[in-house]
Amino acid sequence: MRLEFRLSGTGGQGLITAGIILAEAAINAGKNAIQTQSYGPEARGGASKSEVIISDGEIDYPKVTEADVLLAMSEEAYKKYKTGLKKGGILIMDSTIIEEDSGVDARVYKIPITKLAREEAGKTIVANIVALGAIAAITGVVPKDALEKAVFNRFPKARELNRKALDIGYKAAQKIQEE
């Protein structure tokens, strides 16, 4: 098993943190994982990309070439990275932000991630955690409890908020899958 994830959006959305949490969760679940990132000079805004490779074996080349899973949380990131998605791969897009869907050859999941974070979890800032919940539900790459442990490890002070965010993302994705 080897799965490549590209989490993309703008600086300040917490995508680098999301990548770290995903990799940590994979390690909690006994897998090998590597996380890399690229970002601009802006602490907020600009393009931001976090990449995670999860594998049962050694990982030599640490970067994602063709993503199995693309999370797009900004229009700019979506346009930039959709071509780097493997044919038949998984595209999770934040439908709060991205309206266009120009027909990518992928399983597309349109989830209003930011809206769910703002309205249901109560804070926009946890959009990255909502996204992680969705990724876990859709890909099954890490068990939910391993992911939850990794989230709590990163944010020990905001357990309830993050647990809620994770659940919201998880359920939103499951609902789409059932449809």
């Binding site: 770290i20 990799a23 890399t36 990132q37 640490p62 970067k63």
Partner: peptide
């Protein structure tokens, strides 16, 4: 930069 910023197991 790759080695410095990369996180791995």
């Amino acid at each position: 930069e790759v080695i410095g910023h990369m996180r791995e197991r």
